[in-house]
Nucleic acid binder design. Sequence first.
DNA 1: ATAAAACTTTGCAGAGAGTGCATCTTTGGC
DNA 2: GCCAAAGATGCACTCTCTGCAAAGTTTTAT
Lengths: 204, 204
Amino acid sequence: MTVDETTTLGRRDRKKQQTRAALAAAALRLVAERGLDQVTVEEISEAVDVSARTFFNYFPTKDDALVGDSEGDRDRVLRALAAVPTEQPALEALHRAFTEVVEDMQGDAELWQLRLRVVTQHPVLLARLVTGNATTERALIEAIAARTRLSADDAYPALVVAVAGAALRAAMIRWAAGGGGRLTALLDESFAAVAAGLPDPRTG
Amino acid sequence: MTVDETTTLGRRDRKKQQTRAALAAAALRLVAERGLDQVTVEEISEAVDVSARTFFNYFPTKDDALVGDSEGDRDRVLRALAAVPTEQPALEALHRAFTEVVEDMQGDAELWQLRLRVVTQHPVLLARLVTGNATTERALIEAIAARTRLSADDAYPALVVAVAGAALRAAMIRWAAGGGGRLTALLDESFAAVAAGLPDPRTG
DNA sequence: ATAAAACTTTGCAGAGAGTGCATCTTTGGC
DNA sequence: GCCAAAGATGCACTCTCTGCAAAGTTTTAT
């Protein structure tokens, strides 16, 4: 309404993506400032100048506006995993698949670091971000089972996926805290430590 | 009201514990039957014959009635960890600490398997059960940092705690699915695999 | 045994999340 | 310019969760 250019330049879908991004950004900014419970959907919507009802047309939940596009992430990880040669050990394959996604995060560093900071401050969200995305985890388990020629009910695929997810999460949190350097480097370190069996730093 | 014995035998706190357990059990049973969103707090409370308002005096959230007493679990794990000699490698120390808690679960097998089944069917809850309990994770990280003489901001403590938690979660889910045998045995397997660096089953 | 103190339960009012439905507006195709 | 499809919106409604005040009950002191 306020800007004619966007309406002229963009077509429908363009504007939709724009609104979506604006809602996510506003949600993130407001929650970072005030905390999760001190921000209502009404306020987020107002900041973007849409109705509260419209917010729910874009995101099923307030939380969903904060954690990002987990469906898109899932697809990307699965495609990346499929691209890794089957001969590669399962753990290494997951490492490579995660690396792709993580490189994208590095590209959007500010957004992602803000998101990760918000998320670590509100554990309810943390769950949904990586581990909590049960659908992704399930899909990864099946992909690993297929490539190791094990049953999806076997212990190994579930374990290696859970542990790899933990390694990813640890790297991301560390990155957001500003501890290390590049996210990919932190991810490499995490996976290297896991592959070595997490030797105690005092002895190993 | 219906039973005089309980009122006579138990004093205030006894009755409170009773109500609390009854609410948790009713919640679990109803959600197992119908699904998380098909059960209201009102119905859970009615099943125990208290008001809905009272439910919220016991649990801050509907979810909390389902996932169990995470505070108690936290204390137990931390105490168990403190009892493990400092010389033990961090991963092994966590293994032993978890073993204690897990033995209690085996004692209450029916309750816990029901709980785990409910929880795996509703990923929102999964998060809160293990990984989601950020406070426990934070406390464990600090405990591990202290015993390894590292900073709590170091990468290692966070990583080993996250991975150990993943191993625990994988074992519990497998146990609830009826896959293996005793939970402690499954936990041992998980930790053994992690300590070995999760070698690909095809090569290792 | 009784009264005061402490605690629990409960009802009520209200904010906020989330959903279904009907309506209105915008946009793209013709 | 006009029509059909899609998006935005308002409205009514359910459910979760909180604060507050009014009972009711148990414990403690006397």
